[in-house]
Amino acid sequence: MTRLITSGFSHFILFIGILIMIVPVWMIFASSTHTGLTISTQGLQMFLGDSFYENYLRVLLYQGGFFKEITALKMLLNSFIMATGVAILSVITSLMAAYALVYYRTKYATLLFWLIFVTILVPLELRIFPTYSVMAELNLVNSYFGLIVPISASAIATLFFRQFYKTVPDELLESAKLDGANTWRFFVDFLLPLSKTMIVAMLIFMFVFGYNQYLWPLLVTSSEQYWTVVMGLKMMSGSIVHRFAFVMISMVPPILIIIVLQKHFIKGVFQDK
């Protein structure tokens, strides 16, 4: 009986937490399907209205910004390109860094790892102006490379891959050497297949990280053609329902990524290989 009460109470707390997270999002979505007059006179709505198509079509195609040169569709594309580039480059560099730290028996491997890991303690704001100077010298301002490359090294992803590689039995490496596999073949044919779920998990992490960036895109882009969705949340104009619609649209890409890859994400983060 005590166990049943405890379980019921735990589920009740979990249900309350879900409501706290879901209800505000639902109210924004429901309100975005009404007219601006309805929201201004009656406040936020809990039920859907009949202006969904009109509001969302206007938001997607409306040319906003200071010079009226950018649409929500273009910002979605920019954010998707940036987030995908950050995710892919972060995973590639972290895979190789972790591989070198674990399998190349160098004298200072542990020291090198901690030098990489300590960069977590250095916020982006402290290195943003030197990084911008480098991008300006390389003529990468107002470019996708300028948006992606400076934030594509991830100590967190390196940590995850390093810890995973340490769980791989040494006998696997010895067997690969007996089969004539060199260093590169061992990495490609053995470690990468074993790391598949972890790679997907890190791709999701880094995609969301890149998608949510605001300060770096704001600094490195002076052209509206490279605005991201997060920048648009601050700078796009319109009525309250159009702002709500823009917020809901901006949430779609990361939610879709997580929904599609959630099984691999859970396995990669919480399940022992």
Rank of each mutant, 00 (worst) to 15 (best):
G36V: 00
D50N: 14
L44W: 04
D50H: 13
L19M: 12
L14F: 11
W26P: 05
M21Q: 04
R3A: 11
F47L: 13
E54Q: 15
V25M: 13
H34L: 02
I28K: 09
L14Y: 03
S51A: 15
L37M: 12
S40G: 01
F29Y: 08
L44E: 14
S51I: 09
E54P: 03
T6Q: 11
M27Y: 03
S32N: 06
M27V: 08
I16V: 14
I39N: 05
I13N: 00
F29W: 05
G43Q: 04
T6E: 12
I28C: 02
I18S: 15
S40Y: 14
F9G: 08
V25P: 09
N55R: 02
L48F: 14
I18F: 15
P24Q: 08
G17M: 07
N55I: 05
S7E: 13
M21G: 09
W26T: 00
R3K: 13
G49L: 03
L4Q: 15
M27D: 01
V23F: 08
A30I: 05
S40W: 12
D50F: 10
H11S: 13
I5Q: 00
F15V: 10
I28N: 02
V23E: 07
G36M: 00
R3G: 03
T38V: 12
T41A: 06
G17R: 02
T38S: 11
T41C: 03
F52C: 01
G43L: 06
S7P: 04
V23W: 03
I28G: 01
G43F: 04
I18Q: 10
T33A: 02
V23N: 00
T35W: 08
A30E: 01
V25K: 02
E54A: 14
I5E: 06
M27W: 08
I28M: 07
S7Y: 08
N55H: 05
H11N: 09
A30L: 03
